[in-house]
Design a protein around this nucleic acid. Structure first.
Lengths: 117, 117
DNA sequence: TGAATATATAATAATATACTTATACAATGA
DNA sequence: TCATTGTATAAGTATATTATTATATATTCA
């Protein structure tokens, strides 16, 4: 749901800066559709694990996404308690779904098993 | 008016990167409400003329804003023919109005006279 | 407890960004 | 035509960003 609250200029600029990177924008769209863990991003983006971690840290530090540890894995998802969550949703809603990427991972057997809990 | 067209990920990331700067985001919000020329931005942001010009160039090169020469002055405004115009509108619609800034300029007599044409 | 796996962090290097100063270009008006 | 004003561009510099490599931390399991 999209509300009509105004977002201060500098807050908005910071959010847009964090989202203004192709990798991070894709990450945000992906976690808005599927909870996802670090090693899956490594596969999805064909990128080193530290590089992925550092992008995720920016997203986490800003508050846009949150993490949830499950055993050895840390799952990332959109953070609905983020004060500017609806602003983020509004931005990503017109991005093409990235669900097909998750399906490709599954087809390759690379999706982390998380069917418990 | 906001349409529901999807915006490719890398296109969106580039737009967000351009808007992910406080000065440029303010510029875009301002020109969405008032056509504005370079020297006015210099006053508004208390910033050097070349710095302003370089920000405007990024906005112009991306297609987000357009320019119109009027005598010695060059006026900037949102570019409604930009293919992703509605995406930009959607982003800036929740930013606080910057019209008061223009009114302050007017009160100080610093608004460029553009009452002709 | 120790090895294996998942993730985070630190240090570093390459590149990008956003200013500054100096200068060029364009339009106006005496 | 020349001085003035508004704007753009070029060159240089300081800082920020994003990757890499190396290492640390955390969890699981034998």
């Amino acid at each position: 749901m999209i509300t009509n609250e105004t977002v201060e200029l500098d807050v908005a600029a910071n959010i847009l800066k964090v989202l203004g990177d192709k990798t991070r924008l894709a990450m945000v769209k992906i976690v808005s559709e599927n909870e996802c863990c670090v090693c899956e991003f490594v596969d999805l983006f064909d990128m080193s694990q530290p590089a992925v971690s550092q992008h995720l840290r920016k997203l986490r530090d800003s508050g846009i996404v949150k993490e949830r540890r499950k055993g050895q894995w840390i799952y990332y998802s959109l953070n609905p308690s983020y004060p500017y969550h609806s602003f983020v949703l509004q931005i990503i809603k017109n991005l093409p779904s990235q669900h097909y990427r998750i399906e490709e991972l599954e087809a390759q057997g690379k999706r982390v098993t998380c069917c418990d809990e």
